[in-house]
Design a protein around this nucleic acid. Sequence first.
DNA 1: CCTACCGATCGGTAGG
DNA 2: CCTACCGATCGGTAGG
Lengths: 204, 204
Amino acid sequence: MPAAKAQPVDVRERILEHATRLFAKRGFEGASLKDIAEAVGIRKPSLLYHYPSKDELRGAVLAHLLDRWNDLLPRLLVAATSPEGQFDAVIGETVRFLTEDPDRARLLLREVLDRPQAMGKLIHDHVRPWVNIICNYIRKGQQQGTVHADVVPEAYVVNCMSLVLSNVATHDCLRSFGAEAADSYTRELLRIAKSSLFRRREEI
Amino acid sequence: MPAAKAQPVDVRERILEHATRLFAKRGFEGASLKDIAEAVGIRKPSLLYHYPSKDELRGAVLAHLLDRWNDLLPRLLVAATSPEGQFDAVIGETVRFLTEDPDRARLLLREVLDRPQAMGKLIHDHVRPWVNIICNYIRKGQQQGTVHADVVPEAYVVNCMSLVLSNVATHDCLRSFGAEAADSYTRELLRIAKSSLFRRREEI
DNA sequence: CCTACCGATCGGTAGG
DNA sequence: CCTACCGATCGGTAGG
């Protein structure tokens, strides 16, 4: 009867949480296994029992983040029906996913900087499919005349991804810029994304 | 007569070059003083003679980058006269400055992630003045009807900065996305920035 | 899950 | 600008 174990929540998951937070805050090289272990409340060798090396922990952290993203995707893609509604759902949920825990954006940006080649392959495998779906909606919108004709779909979507990522990741840093409301930058981001995609009513 | 010294170019500057490159590639914690010194062709204690600590080297690298940026600014701000020409000059030169050496973008992004508070102050001091100038041009454009009325100037400029920075920094990683031309992402970035700012002729 | 310990490497110093 | 060296900390292992 293991009645009074330290914390009931799965230790492996608590390790991932604190590893995500510390990798995001200090970077992979800047966050030591000792610090992560002691944030969880165990010793370094105990952490290495669950994840046998720091590199395997890095991989597990990234896989865990992508799992949460994949949880979101299916209901996101079938949610809306109209082209503009679909777009709002997709970019809105993406922003919400990253804003809910900004460490996700910071970690992803750091991984892209640290290992561009490996992340390129990973993005190609995990993100390409739904990018293609968005691109098809954009092309359909161009045929119907609701989307600007000079949009380059793939490049547009990639730039939007970059923009959302860096907007959330640098949120703390850039908030010191003005006295405006905290989410005014994110609202302007959505305006930029939509304004550069859809033709306005008065144009049609 | 010190005839055959190793390299005639200033050693301090060569240290800054290699430190910029290695900090950008591996991060501050991931790049060791030994690696930087040996890339220059000297030993670690010799590097520490020129920059007495790793933190002072970090500061010098950042200051050097901002100096290059400040070299660019004055001629950039007086270059064009029309609002749209001014905008093209500013964002075009910003892209060129970062594209010329993508390590600049990578280093700045890493610094923002590593030390958001310190970078917030630094941005406030060094970048705020010319952001204000751009914002005034945007507001003038809004009064004249050439710029969309719903643009929030400060938030727009900050988002554009974020977008340019992350676009250049993640260039290597995202190029693997499609078979398109290497600069198609950057061209789409410029289109997004302009399309979400200026009203199209047919609207006016 | 722990204590005890490993060799390697870190930023930095002494001294010339 | 160098060699030689410092204590501290790194990721990881042995053994229980």
